[in-house]
Amino acid sequence: MLKDITLGQYFPGNSLIHRLDPRSKILAVLIYIVALFLAKNALSYALLAAALLVCVAISRVKPAALFKGLKPLLFIVVFTALLNLFYIRTGEVLFSWWKLVITVDGVQTAIFMVLRIVLLVSSTFMLTYTTAPMALTDGLESLLSPLKAFHAPVHEFAMMMSIAMRFIPTLVEEADKIMNAQKARGADFENGRLTERAKALLPLLIPLFVSAFRRADELAVAMESRCYHGGEGRTRLKQLKMAACDWLFLLLSSALVVGVILLKRVTL
């Protein structure tokens, strides 16, 4: 049950998208988001949605997985849609009853806002679905490395992130195990009032913290005994390398921004 968390989950695969350099994927998502915020009319949204669908198709990520990732956002999406629907009062009136007025502009903005959120979230999900967590942090470290000139602890930050990501599944598994062990002793995590349920979490949280500290300690010792001393002069087993298709991917993403800007002039 705890295992059902999809946030940042990676779906292993070997598609073209999977094999792209993590840096080009991170940059492409950023460019895509810029394009999303520039999009103002139906045509440009259609263009952006089509681009994402092509990526989904190439990567063979199941659309069901994307929908599952979107589910927690359902409330925000619906809320945004309703807010825009009822608060925008310009344009031709489609429907009015008592104090509620729905206009053409309202409907249009509501649809665009929903599309914007869904595309934004889906594109970032595509990044984490097709990029292994370690590759993602390597990519981030490399992209942020110019900040080292300002003495920003970029390597330490990336290392912390990779360790955190590496241990999320381990801790989830551990939490699952401890939960089962306490359930076997009759612990009840599901029923009761809020205060009771909060108290019922103690038998889970205390052992979980104890073991997280133990693991942190063991990991620190293991790293030091292998002479880890920070990022200075450290080389990599897997060098990141931009290939031709990475540049092509970035070029296509940038083309999206240009396309959206050009489409602004087109009126339907």
Binding site: E174, K177, A181, A184, G186, P203, P207
Partner: peptide, 20 residues
Amino acid sequence: KAQARFSVGLVFQYPEYQLF
């Protein structure tokens, strides 16, 4: 199911990690 929890006692592997 609740009854089975108590009539079948299960000691997990490495049960010392559940002490709290």
